[in-house]
Structures are given as C-alpha cells and as structure tokens.
C-alpha cells in the first residue's frame, strides 16, 4: 500500500473530545434511523394482523379496532395449520438429512485426499452455474408418476431440498479446513481408522458448523417459494406456508385475505426468528468464515 501523505496535524474548531462526541452523535442518529427503517415493516405487519375493521389494505397502519379475529379466522377457515405443520415437518427432515449430506461431502473434500478430488470440486462448481430449478421440469414429471406431488408434495420437496445439497459444501469445508491436520495424524498414528478420526476426533470439534448446517436446513423450507411453488399446485392440503400465503396476496384474494396474510406471517416468523436469534452466533460464524475463505 502506498504511504499516506502527511498533512498538518489534525486541528478543528472543537476540541478532540467534543468532535468525537459529535461524530458519535451523528452515528447514533443514523443507526436510529436505520433501526426505524428496518423494523418498520415488522411493526407494520404485526399491527395490521390485529386489524378487525377490514381485511383489505386500507392505507393506514394503526387499526381502528384491535382484535384477534384474523388469527381465529386463520385457524377456523383456512388450511393454514396444516401448511404450518407440513412446513415444520419439512424443516426438521431437511435439517437432519441435509446435515448428513453436506457434512459428509465437505468433510471428505476438506480432509481426505483421493484421486479425482479436484476434478469433482470443479465439476460441482460448473454444475452449480445452471439455474437449479430447471431440473424441476423433469423432476415434477417423474414425481407425478411416483405420487410425490399434491398431498404428498412435502415428501417430494424434502427429497428435492436434500438430494443435491451436497453441492453446497463450501461453508462447511471452509470450517474443516481450519482444523489442524496434526490432530488427524496423531490419531492415525495411534491406530484409529479414518472413520474413527471422523467421529471421535473431528466431530466433537465441529459443533459450530453442525449447528450452522442444521440451522440452514431448518430455515430452507420456511423461506423457499420457488421450488415449493413448482411441486405444489392448487392442492391445498399438501401446501407449504410460502405457496399458500402467496395465493392470498394475488389480485383476486387480496381484498379479503390481506390481514390474514399478515397474521399468518407473524405466526410463521415466530418459530423461525426465535430459532435463528437463539443460534445467531453460529450463523454469523458461518457467514463470515465462508465469505472470507471464498
């Protein structure tokens, strides 16, 4: 880096302390504005979910009449509970299966050396450049034959979420790369097989990445609209929350079901946000670690 040109020493009208205080005040102000902007939609959705007087968009935020009517309608008149359970099941199944797939892939690529390793990584990199949902055109056709759409769509979706998840090995591999190789070697010298090295030496050290992978797997079905919408058509019982709720905001439904959407959005967000905030530390480690290592 080039040297920074020397200028005359820092002087200003205010003293150093006062100027720092002013700077901090500006930063606090900005951060407060950011907080308001970022939280505004969340307050909005909660407020609108308690609005009784109208189910449509009304152009104001504060309800004239508060009540839990929307939540009651949600349970009585819609299949929302079923969608919620579907998505929950998908979340748990995906969390478990995806973790198995991702960890075995990333561990192998990171710590084992074998012929074709580099080639395999390049192959998956290139494969990842294709738009993934294109595969669904064929998968949908096959799943229709196998009966994995409509009512059974959640099962089909679990398969879709998990089967190729090995391709998302990057973050976990980055983590395994940081564990010193000498640990493996020491265990190997002591006569451990590679399997034993894996589950007796490395796994106990890998709690953060396991939690990160589980968290990502659990969140995937809650946030996914693209793939779910492809496999779940019109059949109300097999829907996930994303697909079902999307329908409510279509032009045809919006005048009645807008506040229902808000209420459902609040309910969906509660489990996801609480799990997420609980495990936030691990998520942050994953994001920063993965990004820096590329």
């Amino acid at each position: 880096m080039k040297q920074i040109r020397t200028k005359k020493p820092h002087t200003s009208l205010l003293g150093a302390k006062a100027s720092r205080r002013l700077g901090n005040a500006i930063i606090y102000l900005l951060l407060t504005v950011i907080t308001v902007v970022w939280l505004f939609p969340f307050f909005g959705i909660v407020l609108e979910s308690f609005r009784v007087e109208s189910g449509a968009q009304v152009g104001y935020l504060w309800p004239k009449q508060f009540g839990a009517d929307n939540y009651i309608r949600l349970l009585r008149e819609t299949d929302f509970l079923r969608w919620f359970i579907n998505t929950g099941i998908m979340g748990v199944a995906t969390a478990i299966l995806q973790t198995v797939f991702v960890l075995s892939m990333s561990y192998t690529l990171s710590r084992l050396r074998f012929k074709g390793r580099r080639g395999l990584m390049n192959f998956m990199l290139i494969l990842g450049m294709f738009p993934g949902f294109l595969t669904l055109i064929l998968i949908y056709k096959v799943f229709v034959d196998l009966g994995l759409t409509a009512n059974m769509a959640p099962l089909g979706l679990i398969i879709v979420y998990c089967a190729s998840s090995g391709m998302g090995y990057y973050v976990a591999k980055g983590f395994f790369d940081t564990i010193p190789k000498s640990l493996d070697e020491a265990a190997r010298v002591d006569g451990a097989t590679r399997l034993q090295v894996f589950y007796k030496v490395i796994m106990p050290l890998s709690k953060p990445i396991v939690i990160y992978t589980v968290l990502m797997g659990f969140m995937a079905p809650w946030g996914d609209f693209m793939l779910a919408n492809y496999l779940i058509h019109e059949n109300s019982r097999g829907m996930s929350v994303a697909v079902g709720m999307f329908e409510w905001l279509s032009r045809a439904n919006m005048n009645e079901k807008y506040t229902l959407f808000c209420a459902a959005g609040v309910i969906v967000s509660i489990p996801v946000v609480s799990v997420f905030l609980l495990l936030q530390r691990y998520y942050v480690e994953g994001v920063t670690g993965g990004a820096v290592k590329g």
Binding site: L39, F42, M245, Y258, F261, Q280
Partner: peptide, 23 residues
C-alpha cells in the same frame, strides 16, 4: 444494532418481501 439488522435475515423472505411490496 446488529440484532435489528439480523432480524431481516431471520424472517422468511416471502413474508417480508411480499408485505413490503404491498406497502
């Protein structure tokens, strides 16, 4: 401050984005 921002990541995108688009 960090948690406020992280909230946006935690809430499923189809909820936050659909709501914001209708705003």
């Amino acid at each position: 401050w960090r948690t406020v921002l992280v909230m946006t990541i935690a809430i499923p995108q189809f909820v936050s984005l659909l709501y914001v688009s209708r705003l």
